[in-house]
């Protein structure tokens, strides 16, 4: 029983990180219809920037904030430089495009930071004992950061004019345009938001996952699986999906084989996509294909 709880707690924290990355997919996809394959790389870059700044003598908090800001700017620049010029292309073109961006970011990290993984130190050291279940404080940091980031995003989208414009653009692009909302500005904003949530995930999870040049592939794809559970359309569903995936992964690793852990997400993905394309938590509506 304790073992089970132990696995669930660990699963929830990794799952929260997947969920945050998944929120990035939702932000970009809902406004632009693009699947950003470089989403995981946002987390990777943020991790490396924070590690580098910490190494340069900055306090941890400052390094973390600076990493998030850096990646937010980077994401905005990528949207302007690489994505905007291809406006109006098909899904396949965007996949290739963001794949190119992702590969470039990965390779740059490899050249600059080298192939060996690094990690931020745990934000608070030690281990908490909650009724026999050993909890790493970092797990709690990840969960708290996820809740804060998701809540902040929620408030932004629900309570501010810009946020409402963003939602309008996602729900009714034509009508939004008619009332003067610029789709291209909203597209940039969606990338910046995706950069921020991805970066937060990258920084808080670095002490647990470690940061290496290739981590973005797995973080990104698992984030995508999380987002798919909500049909790529809902922020809360993406986070729930992430938590679910994290827990299932840990259970498979704990009870079956740790080597299979990475395949779980993709089995889930394929089954999910084939069986319920609108997502586990998404609504199933009859969509005419004509």
């Amino acid at each position: 029983m304790i073992d089970l709880l132990q696995l669930v707690v660990a699963g929830l924290s990794t799952g929260a990180a997947y969920g945050l990355v998944g929120v990035g997919f939702v932000a970009i996809h809902s406004v632009t219809g693009i699947i950003n394959l470089a989403q995981g790389e946002f987390a990777m870059v943020a991790g490396f920037v924070a590690i580098a700044l910490l190494g340069a003598g900055f306090p941890l908090a400052a390094a973390a904030v600076a990493a998030v800001v850096t990646v937010a700017v980077l994401a905005g620049v990528i949207e302007r430089v690489a994505v905007a010029p291809a406006a109006g292309s098909s899904a396949v073109v965007y996949i290739m495009l963001t794949l190119g961006v992702s590969t470039t970011l990965k390779a740059t990290a490899l050249l600059v930071a080298g192939p060996q993984p690094r990690a931020l130190p745990a934000f608070t050291p030690g281990v908490l004992d909650l009724g026999g279940v050993q909890v790493r404080p970092q797990d709690l940091w990840i969960l708290v950061a996820t809740v804060i980031a998701a809540a902040a995003l929620y408030v932004f989208l629900e309570r501010t004019t810009t946020g409402r414009a963003f939602r309008a653009c996602a729900e009714q692009p034509v009508a939004a345009r008619l009332v003067g909302i610029s789709p291209s500005r909203m597209s940039t904003l969606s990338w910046v938001l995706a950069g921020i949530v991805g970066a937060v995930a990258g920084v808080v999870s670095s002490p647990v996952f470690q940061t290496d040049w290739n981590i973005g592939l797995f973080l990104g794809l698992k984030g995508f699986v999380a987002a798919s559970m909500g049909g790529l359309a809902s922020i809360p569903a993406a986070i729930l999906g992430g938590l679910l995936l994290g827990v299932v992964e840990r259970l498979v690793a704990g009870y079956i084989s740790s080597g299979l852990q990475d395949a779980v997400a993709f089995f889930l993905l394929i089954i999910l996509l084939v069986a319920r394309p609108s997502g586990v938590f998404g609504r199933t509506g009859a969509v005419a294909r004509v």
Binding site: M96, G100, V101, T103, T104, A107, T108, L110
Partner: peptide, 9 residues
Amino acid sequence: LIGFGLLLT
């Protein structure tokens, strides 16, 4: 890899 990424983009 870096050449490939840039080339693809």
